[in-house]
Amino acid sequence: MTGFRLRPQPGGTGAGHGFRLRSRPAGVVDEPYLRRLGLIRVLVAGYATAWTAVRAPHLLDHLDFDGRRFDPVGVLAPLSGPPAGIAVVAGVAATVAFGAAATLGWRYRVTGPALAVSFLAVTTYRSSWGQIFHTENLAALHLAVLAVAPADRHWALRRALLPRHPRRSEPERSAVRSGDDGRWAVRALAVATVAGYVVAGVAKLRNGGAAWLDGEVLVNQVAFDNARKDVLGDVMSPLAGFFVEHRWLARPAVLASMAVELGAPLALLGRRAAGVWSLAAWGFHLAILVLMAIVFPYHLLGLALVPLLPLEDWTSRLRPIGPVSAGRSPFGDPVG
């Protein structure tokens, strides 16, 4: 059969040359981390693709900016001036194209790294006009890890090879030879998430000091950010006024945010801890949205948290054969 199948294919073989979307290729040891990596690849690469496509008009608006505003950071720091317009257009288009391919897992050895590089370039370009944004950092880091991870062993679209005489594709043979179960990559992705929260918590203590802990800094931050939005013609949070008028709310809010940020490493202890922390972290970003009208889409959509969660279990009903995952933490023995 030639075409696309959404259902996983038992045994990983099929008739005819074509494309198949499979949850478990033939010959690959059924490992929960490889399945989780496949799902994370779909979600994170899909996010990067959608983000770039949706933000393309905004990104291209930068072409009209006065070049004197260009203040390059990160990988663009060596540039003395803004890149040529054609390069920006090509970068945005390439990110969408590579992103679509990587999301599907097609030619992932090439499209995965290409997406990581192009998304990093595009988002760095966005942050190189005098304001560094903090919403896509983690997506860029996750893509970098996924680019070198065995993230295309499951949920990947690839050409069926020699279907009449089932054989393993080269990535599959490589996976078997290397014995790479992907656990290191899931760990690295989870560590990237957790470490980012820790850095943010440390920054609050270093920059705000004791005043941060008593809630005053938070009240003033909420007021400042909303007032700045207002004078710049943007929309203030409708709940900001209530929050600054009821200052007693600030202290528990600060303690909660500190618990989420500095307590993030606890999420690495096991499945239950990861679940509880992930819920708290999601609530943290929801509170930022409600009080400051600031959207962290990657976090609010839960994508920042997926390396910590047993996605492979949640999708196990889509996997008609093979052992059921034990619901593991990448940092310990099976829990829960």
Binding site: L120, T124, I132, N137, V191, A203, L218
Partner: peptide, 29 residues
């Protein structure tokens, strides 16, 4: 990965970067 992401926490808190950030937003008084 841990070393890279955590590194900015040990640097100048006023210096930010991308994608490795000191995440200074909301932190200043």
């Amino acid at each position: 990965v841990a070393a890279m992401v955590l590194a900015p926490a040990f640097g100048d808190p006023a210096v930010d970067g991308y994608p490795l950030s000191s995440y200074p937003m909301f932190s200043t008084d």
